[in-house]
Amino acid sequence: MEDMAKIAFGFYTLIILSGSLLAVGAKSLVRAMVGLIATLLGVAGMYMLLNAQFLALMQILIYVGAVCVLIFFAIMLTRADSGGEEAESAPLRQNLLALTAVLSVGGILGWLVMTRPLVTTGVPVEVAIEKLGLGLLGPYGLAFELISVVLLVSMAGAVLLAWERRNGK
């Protein structure tokens, strides 16, 4: 990697690390969501570094623009006020068990990643947006249609679940 890329990589890693710590550890859910947004922006920066600009834009558009707004709605609709549901911290035993689970999974996967290096090309490949579009319409058309059906069904299901019936109807 070039020097600038190294600096940018370190910067984004720092953003991702602190954002995910905030998202997992914050007492207030709104602060946790701010941490999630920081993490998502850091990942978008990583996509930029990986020469996938379209994905970076989509990451900001879909995650920061849509999913985070949804999570904000969830926080507001359940009236989880700032000192609310996460105010009392989890018992020590639960924290220890969670830490054990995380460290075992992370240890195994990290060991696998570190000890089995793959053949890499030094510079990320560039894929033109036209190729992505043609891929969605051509070889991956079925997956594309299935995703749209899944989105439609989940939206219809969400409306159906959250529908409030008036009394007496």
Partner: peptide
């Protein structure tokens, strides 16, 4: 993974 096993609310 840590968050999902330690958080106490669905959000």
């Amino acid at each position: 993974l840590f968050g999902i096993s330690q958080r106490r609310s669905l959000v």
